[in-house]
Amino acid sequence: MTHFSALNRYLPALTLLMLLPAWEVICRSFDVPAYLFPSPSLIFESFMEVEPARWLEHLWATLRVALLGFGLSLMISIPLAMLMVNSQYLSKTLYPFLVIVQSTPVVAIAPLLITMFGSGEAPRLAITCLITFFPLVVSAMTGMLATPPELIDLSRSLRAPRYKEVLAIRLPYSLPHIFSGMKVAITLSIIGAVVAEFVAAEQGLGYFIQFSTSFFKVPQAFAALIFLSLISLALFKLVHWIQSYFFGWTLTKGKA
C-alpha cells in the first residue's frame, strides 16, 4: 500500500524524467532548429550561460509583483465580498461591474494601465490585482452564501450584531471556498506579472523572455519559461500547505 502511494506521488516527476530523453532524441534526430524548439541539453546550456545573480534578479522581480499583487487583491476582495454578502443593494450594483471587468481581457487593458500609471511598479501590481480579483471575490461570496441557515439562526438567536455574524460565522465557513479561489488566483498572479512585464518592464522573467526571443535566444526563453512554471507550481503548493497546516478542517469532507 505504502510503496504504491509513493509511486503515485512521484509519478508526474517520473513521467517528466522519461520524456526528457525522448525530447532530446527527437530534437537531435530530426535536426529541429534551436530557434524553433530547442533540445533540453541546449536549454540547460543557455541556462548556465546566464549568471545565477541575474536569474535571481529576474525571478525576484516577477515573484515580488505576483505576490504583492496577489496580497493586495486578497486584501481588497475578501472585505468587498463581506460587504456584498451583507448588502443586497451593494451586491446588485457591484456584481455586474465585476463581471464586466472580468470579461475584459487583462492583456488588452495592460497597455492602457501603463499609460495611466506610468511605467513603475504600480501598473504591474494593478494588472496582477485585476487578474486575481475575480476568482477571489466569487469564491469568498459563494462560500459565505453557502453558510447553512441554521448557523445564521444560531447567531441571530444570540442577538449578535450583523458584523459578528459575517466575521465569526460566514467568513470562516467560506474558508474552503476561499482556498480554492486562492489556488486559482495564485497561479493567475504569475500570469498577471508576466503580462505586465511584456508591456513595460526592465526586469523580470516575462521581460527576460521577450528580450531573449527578440534576439532569437529561444533556448534562454525556454529556460525562463521553465522557471515560471516552477514558481507557479511552488506557489500553488505553498497555498495548499498553508491550508492543510493551519486550516486542516477545510480539507476533510465532513458531515458538519
Binding site: P148, E150, L151, D153, L154, S155, S157, L158, R159, A160, K164, A168, I169, P172, Y173, L175, F247, W249, T250, G254, A256
Partner: peptide, 27 residues
C-alpha cells in the same frame, strides 16, 4: 431561551468544547 436546532448546527472549525461555549463567546 436555549435552542436545539433540527440540524446539528456545529461550527466545523471549532472542536467540541469550543462549539459548546460558542454562544457565550459569540455574544
Amino acid at each position: 431561551i436555549g435552542i436545539v436546532f433540527q440540524q446539528p448546527t456545529l461550527l466545523p472549525w471549532l472542536n467540541v468544547t469550543e462549539n459548546v461555549v460558542f454562544p457565550v463567546k459569540h455574544k
